[in-house]
Amino acid sequence: MEKKILVKNNPIIAAVRDVSLIEKAVLSPVETIFLMSGDIFTVEHCVEESRKNNKSIFLHVDLIKGIANDREGIKYLSKKVKPDGIVSTKNQLIQAAKKEGLLTVQHLFMIDTQAYENGIRNISTINPDAIEIMPGLMPRVIREFYEKIDCPIITAGLIKHPNEIREAVDAGAHGVAVGAPELWDLDYKNY
């Protein structure tokens, strides 16, 4: 699978929660950025900055203001803004993005067994390019997902220490999205 979502050298993904941090994210050693804030006026700049610095960028469309959460909003992003892909909890947005040629990350909240089972079903039906599960501090669940699904796993949420990143990767996570800018600069290979 030769997709841009697959991080090659660094599993840390910069989860940018404030567009003012885009400069720090693009200058960090991360390969991929998940933009989790902004609006119709700022996303284009964030994508351009990412491109200039050879970073992949995914827009968490559920959190971007001024972009309709429908097929037309996804089409606008695909044609005008041109991110590498989207992150969303919504099945219909994942499907629309796939039709527009964008990479897709299905965001799942693992709050209980029912959410876990629904997540497995959705993944097999929607077929996203990757999944992002929250919270990220669940090595056993990461291992179980890794054994049951055939797409990269990204974990996120509540990760504060380098050893937690290592635990998630060791359990089978392909990437770990972290919001703490001080973790974006970690030399992953040396911790």
Rank of each mutant, 00 (worst) to 15 (best):
L158I: 14
S88M: 13
K82L: 06
G101R: 09
I153M: 12
I74H: 10
V169S: 12
I154F: 15
M110E: 05
V141S: 12
R17H: 09
Q114I: 06
E117Y: 03
V105P: 03
I13C: 11
N91D: 12
V43A: 01
E72L: 01
K79R: 14
D62S: 07
C151H: 11
R166P: 00
E49G: 00
D150R: 07
Q92M: 14
L35H: 01
A180C: 03
G85R: 04
F109K: 01
V16D: 13
D187Y: 00
M36E: 04
R121A: 14
A96Q: 13
Y76A: 04
R71V: 05
D170R: 15
L77D: 09
V19E: 13
Y188I: 08
D62W: 10
I64R: 04
I131Y: 02
S20K: 14
L102K: 04
V81R: 05
W184S: 03
A25W: 09
S50P: 04
W184D: 12
G179H: 06
V47E: 03
I40T: 11
K99T: 07
L102Y: 00
G136T: 11
V61A: 01
D112K: 09
H107A: 08
R166C: 02
A68S: 15
E72M: 08
V43N: 00
I64T: 06
L35Q: 02
E44K: 10
N190K: 15
C151T: 15
R51F: 08
P128S: 07
F145N: 10
V16C: 10
V7W: 00
E72Y: 03
W184V: 01
K148C: 02
K99V: 04
V7Q: 09
G85I: 01
D84V: 07
V81I: 15
S28A: 07
E72P: 00
S124M: 08
I111S: 05
Y191W: 04
A156Q: 08
P139D: 12
I33N: 08
L77A: 09
K4F: 12
K148E: 11
E72D: 13
P139Q: 07
T104S: 04
Q95S: 02
R140K: 11
